[in-house]
């Protein structure tokens, strides 16, 4: 690695001030799993590193308007093991559990991973399907935007210079709804997904029709995406093989995967269709259980 200045401020304001002062040369570090790896590869050589680790309170996971607010410094492992998350949004705990290994989950933070904007990650997929919002803070104030709008390009997010992610707010699932995350891992168990799909499904009171659905995919392009076309096909429809096939075809048309070691673009496109079907089926089943519970 190249030499750099390092600061570990104790407050967010202090961190933001340092970031503003050093402009382009400064980078924010939290868990460091992605950044230090790239620094070691000398692909990235910031002149100034601002660590958020010593800022108190940024790692809280708390109830928020019926949903959950996760502080940017919460680690993946914190989310995975949080009793609150497990109780209210088990799909989110399950999604974080699929990231790399326990050791990496101990290090990687929720905010850091979002800011890294790698389209092959697991959590953004489920966060998009759940309708989560990212909270961003800069010296000019705070803003929030839907996770699906946060990712702009390969490893590029909507963060402006001097801004940091401070948290993510995840709403609770609607009643009579279910959610599922499907990570397709055809090689080893510790790999990034070849294709990942998260889906939420709400069922009508009769338990036969889909009231609404949200579908998100990862590893199928330069950002995680939301498959609105497929979602539109599902609303008001009777659940079944026909509908799943239609959704799968719609998704195949919507994705633009990159060929890499985890599969060719053609294969990933096909698998996006298959995995959407699987995720919807599981979300549907969970929704039925939920519907029965509410009735």
């Amino acid at each position: 690695m190249r030499a750099f200045e390092y600061a570990a401020p104790r407050t967010l304001d202090e961190a933001l001030a340092v970031l503003r002062e050093h402009g382009d040369e400064a980078r924010v570090i939290a868990g460091g799993t992605a950044l230090v790896t790239m620094m070691r590869q000398r692909l990235v050589s910031p002149g100034y590193l601002v660590s958020l680790r010593d800022i108190r309170g940024l790692d809280r996971i708390e109830a928020d308007n019926g949903g959950i607010r996760i502080g940017a410094l919460a680690t993946h492992r914190d989310v995975e093991t949080s009793p609150l998350v497990r109780e209210r949004l088990p799909v989110l705990a399950e999604t974080f559990r699929r990231v790399a290994s326990v050791r990496i989950r101990n290090m990687a933070t929720v905010g850091g991973a979002l800011a890294h904007a790698d389209p092959n990650q697991d959590p953004p997929v489920t966060l998009i399907a759940l309708g989560a919002r990212v909270e961003i803070c800069g010296t000019d104030g705070r803003r929030a935007l839907p996770v699906e709008e946060f990712f702009r390009d390969y490893y590029e997010s909507a963060l402006e210079p001097g801004e940091v992610v401070i948290g993510v707010v995840v709403p609770q699932l609607a009643p009579a709804s279910g959610a599922a995350y499907v990570k397709f891992l055809p090689r080893t168990a510790d790999d990034y997904a070849t294709v990942a799909v998260a889906a939420t499904v709400s069922v009508d009171p009769d338990g036969e029709r889909c009231r609404a659905a949200r579908i998100a995919l990862g590893s199928v392009g330069v950002t995680p995406i939301r498959a609105r076309g497929a979602e539109g096909l599902l609303a008001g429809q009777r659940f079944g093989a026909e509908l799943l096939r239609g959704a799968g075809e719609a998704v195949k048309g919507a994705v633009d995967p990159l060929s890499d070691h985890r599969g060719s673009a053609a294969y990933k496109r096909e698998m996006a269709g298959v995995m959407v079907g699987r995720a919807l089926t599981r979300a549907w089943d969970a929704a039925l259980v939920s519907a029965r519970g509410t009735r």
Partner: peptide
């Protein structure tokens, strides 16, 4: 007490 990868952790942290 928690496992980490020391190869991608900075000593200063």
């Amino acid at each position: 007490g928690k496992m980490i990868s020391s190869c991608i952790a900075l000593a200063v942290s």
